[in-house]
């Protein structure tokens, strides 16, 4: 059966229990992709967060922010039948895309996204199993629903498993 790619766009959270599905966050720059998988219930979920937290308290799109997106991802996983204690959590992204001298990127959003994700997961008592974060290159991350494999690919590099 051919894999069915389900794109997880900016600020989106997607959940799937269909074995042929692959949740994909394409071209993560400073954004972080957080993937969760329950290997018993075979439920997969992915968050594509853009910023660490909302600054003005408005969170109509919880997936845009790490602080609201991670709890929302867990909530949606549980609604789909996953058990929080079984969740395998992995993360990718958080690069600094602007490295030219004089170029300003406010407060290195990529690094802040990564730090916030670790903090939020820690607060929720969720163990981060693996990550591929930082640096200066974009990543595409895939989460395969049939077996929970999560892979990361950067331009010009081989796709590799996030163990």
């Amino acid at each position: 059966m051919a894999d069915q790619a389900l794109p997880v766009g900016l600020g989106e959270i997607k959940i799937s229990k269909s074995p042929g599905d692959v949740l994909v966050a394409y071209g993560l720059g400073s954004c972080v992709g957080v993937g969760m998988y329950d290997p018993v219930a075979k439920v997969a979920g992915m968050l594509h967060a853009v910023l660490p937290q909302s600054l003005n308290g408005t969170e109509q799109v919880p997936g845009k922010f790490v602080t609201t997106g991670v709890p929302k991802l867990i909530e949606e996983m549980e609604k789909a039948g996953a058990l929080r204690s079984r969740l395998q959590v992995r993360m990718a992204g958080g690069a600094n895309m602007l490295t030219a001298p004089g170029a300003k990127q406010a407060f290195n959003i990529g690094e802040r996204n990564v730090l916030q994700a670790r903090t939020t997961l820690d607060t929720l008592r969720m163990r981060l199993q693996a990550e591929d974060v930082g640096g200066t290159v974009g990543r595409t991350v895939r989460l395969f629903v049939n077996d929970g494999r999560m892979t990361v690919k950067a331009l010009g590099s081989q796709e590799k498993a996030l163990a």
Partner: peptide, 17 residues
């Protein structure tokens, strides 16, 4: 020089908030 999504993240990260 990168994927389109990663390049344009520079813009989206600035306005998303």
């Amino acid at each position: 020089v990168d994927m389109v999504g990663a390049i344009l993240n520079v813009v989206t990260a600035t306005v998303a908030g």
